[in-house]
Amino acid sequence: MSDFVTESIESGIQVLCFDRVEKKNAITLDMYQALTDALRRAEANPEIKVTLLHGAGGDFSSGNDINEFVQIAQTPEKMEAIMAFLQVLTSYKKPLIAGVEGRAVGVGATMLLHCDLVLASREARLQFPFVQLGLVPEAASSHVLPQLVGHQKAFEILILGEVVDATQAHELGLVNHLCEETEAYKVAFRFAEKVAALPVEAVALSKDLLKYRGQDDVQMALMREGRIFKDRLRSKEAHQAFSTFLSRNK
């Protein structure tokens, strides 16, 4: 595992925690690899019935590590680690639950679209700032989000990239239930226990029935986005946006 992704297994529940608190749980290539390996192990382990994602330190994840994106722009083949994670995430066969506190930005927000249950604190904030960075949406969000909220609202969320607060996310159907601040993990774990107590095969088959009709479209969107995203990383717009972002953070 990565130093910044922790894994524990309790009562049939695999808990994966983003633990890079000083960077608001920004995800590195090593973290992507660790998450991919963990999800693959879980699918092969009959003792694991549910996977729960959450972030340490009051944030879910601030998205991709921008410093690494600057490096990836020079060596696009490094995108393979990201794409491998997204492929496993979007086709994951076991129930996937997220407990969200604070910021869920970029891939920290798009991965929630592929969770089966999302529990969020009332202070949680989702944001999809791809266009502001000169990029395009990823994780098949260009396909999944319009299916959930309609074209016009998806355009607003993905193109303007403004913050979607927890109440809005709940009203739009991006979040199942809201809870008080610091309670998201505890509430998410309770839901995970409920799911883990159900007949395993019936749960898996029911998830497959819910998702199978759109699965090919999701994978096609994921691949198309990936090709365009890789090209955008080398674009002048992205380079300027990254430079502005990094200089502002300094």
Rank of each mutant, 00 (worst) to 15 (best):
E7V: 03
R122H: 03
L35K: 08
L53Q: 06
A42E: 05
T167K: 11
S2D: 14
H239Q: 13
V21Y: 05
V195T: 04
M83N: 11
E47M: 08
E43Q: 14
L126N: 07
A104E: 10
R213M: 12
E77K: 04
D65L: 12
T51I: 01
A98I: 01
L205S: 11
T90M: 15
N249L: 14
V175P: 01
Q147M: 14
M223C: 02
R248Y: 08
A154D: 04
V136E: 05
E77Q: 09
F229K: 09
Q74V: 03
I13D: 08
L29K: 06
R224G: 07
A202N: 14
F85L: 15
L29A: 06
R248C: 01
A44Q: 13
L16M: 04
R122Y: 06
N249C: 06
E123V: 05
C115L: 02
M111A: 00
M111C: 10
L178K: 11
H170F: 07
I66H: 05
T36Q: 06
L119S: 00
E181K: 13
Y185Q: 09
L148W: 06
I72H: 00
L246W: 07
L113F: 03
P76A: 04
R103C: 03
A196W: 03
A26I: 04
V118Q: 00
Q215P: 07
F18M: 14
R103T: 13
Q127G: 09
S121Y: 00
L148Q: 14
I9C: 08
K207R: 15
G106Y: 11
S142K: 10
A154I: 06
P95Y: 01
V88P: 11
D116T: 03
Q33D: 11
R41Q: 14
Q33T: 13
Q71A: 04
G106P: 04
E171A: 13
E47A: 12
K94Y: 12
Q147E: 14
Q152I: 08
L198I: 07
V200F: 08
L16P: 02
F155C: 01
M111H: 07
Y185L: 12
E183G: 02
M111V: 09
S91Y: 01
N176M: 01
G226Y: 03
Q240L: 12
Q168T: 10
H143Y: 15
A238Q: 12
A104S: 12
L222Y: 05
G214W: 06
V131W: 00
E180N: 09
L53C: 05
E162V: 04
L119E: 01
F18R: 08
F191T: 02
S141C: 02
A197C: 07
E237T: 10
S8P: 03
A241Q: 05
V187N: 05
I159E: 13
D37E: 14
K236R: 10
P146D: 10
F242N: 02
D231S: 14
Y32E: 06
